[in-house]
Nucleic acid binder design. Structure first.
Lengths: 220, 220
DNA sequence: ATATTATCCGGACCGTAGTCCGTTTAGCAG
DNA sequence: CTGCTAAACGGACTACGGTCCGGATAATAT
């Protein structure tokens, strides 16, 4: 069983967690405070790095040295809730945490994740919007591994890594928010559909050999 | 059975398909030619609207009036191949087109779509990158409806719309390219995993009633 | 040929994310 | 307290997508 570095997410410091100069620490707090205020007032989409710098009374360069990018800032803002979520599905009580059947944990995971995304909607989306490595951010890797691990535990033998990727994509914030906000899908429907999906993926006997022409079982 | 406006994608003209002034037509051709050249030279990601305008010898405003946005331009560049793909899965020979069993058509659809995305990778990703309505673009709606239709035909009763959304998300260009380019997943593995996924989704008996006490399957 | 008008053109302009580099300062040694 | 240095600062700068509107022009009527 593998382990990611344990609630990695993202601190405020640039990279190495070494000591932080006092002015840097002070500015980080100023920035986080200003960011929360701005989001309160204008929403996450209304937060621009310029306005944030101005509001916090620091230079723009400082903002980017602290958080690397806009997405990095959003991740930092999410990190508390995110860490709590991670703690719950890794160490918390069943059915989300260890102890329950893998399928039950999968269902619980998706349900909670959907609720999380819908609660912190704009933030979660903004945190994703980094250019390329959206999927290699520590938190995303952790979810992926968690799903993959549960799939294996549930006896899914067919390429659990890719299957976990498919399941993860279903929980993509942008898609979930789009369904809810544009198509007015009720959140419970999302959870039910997730349940349906993972149940089928897990419960079905491995039906791998049906694409090639030999012994197709249910061709129809 | 519903029908989208039939190979809608996007022409070059702004909106209403009315007559196009000769200079407008000339500029559209100049722009498309320049765009293909630039992509040849710098890749799709290296194409900027400024450089395109300069290369084509037109003003920047012209570029945006023609194509609306960068994503719109990319869609136009893709439209030929896209139309061919649409034609094949809507009217072409089985197993992609009508005539085969729904599950076989689903498998074929995903396989072809994966190949399509991998072939026109950068373009497909760039065409998606519009801000909000990524999922409401005509082509995306058509795929979604197609998958949904096949799911219904295959007897999947549990919220086919959302199930189609999940399956669509698996075929998202950004994710597919990420898997192939960053994680070096072989394209055949993607196809196999897709096959596995849809097989399980379709073949499994409706397992809806396992999360809630009352076995009601809401539908939409 | 001339006048009219709807359409199109072009490039200056804007807001935004992200970079660069000369300047300032915190932390520390003597 | 003074001097030193590595780190942090800040804001001008770049690159980009997208908008705007005064001027140019193709199509058409007379």
């Amino acid at each position: 069983m593998f382990f990611v570095s344990l609630i990695p997410i993202r601190s405020g410091s640039p990279l190495g967690g070494e000591a932080e100069r006092s002015d840097a620490a002070r500015n980080r707090e100023l920035l986080l405070k200003a960011a929360r205020e701005l989001i309160e007032e204008c929403g996450a989409d209304g937060l621009t790095m310029d306005r944030l710098a101005e509001r916090a009374g620091v230079g723009k360069g400082t903002v980017f040295r602290r958080f690397g990018s806009r997405a990095g800032l959003m991740m930092t803002l999410l990190s508390d809730s995110e860490a709590a979520f991670q703690g719950r599905f890794m160490f918390g009580p069943p059915p989300l945490g260890p102890g329950a059947a893998p399928l039950d944990r999968l269902v619980a995971f998706g349900t909670e994740r959907i609720a999380f995304v819908l609660e912190f909607g704009e933030l979660a989306r903004a945190a994703d919007s980094s250019a390329y490595n959206r999927f290699d951010v520590p938190a995303a890797v952790l979810w992926h591994r968690h799903i993959e691990m549960l799939l294996r535990a549930a006896g899914v033998t067919a390429d659990p890594w890719l299957m976990a990727m498919s399941l993860s994509s279903t929980l993509d914030p942008e898609r979930l928010l789009h369904a809810v906000r544009v198509h007015h899908v009720a959140p419970e429907r999302l959870a039910e559909s997730w349940c349906e999906l993972v149940t089928r993926v897990v419960s079905c006997p491995g039906g791998s050999s049906r694409r090639t022409e030999n012994n197709s079982e249910g061709g129809g």
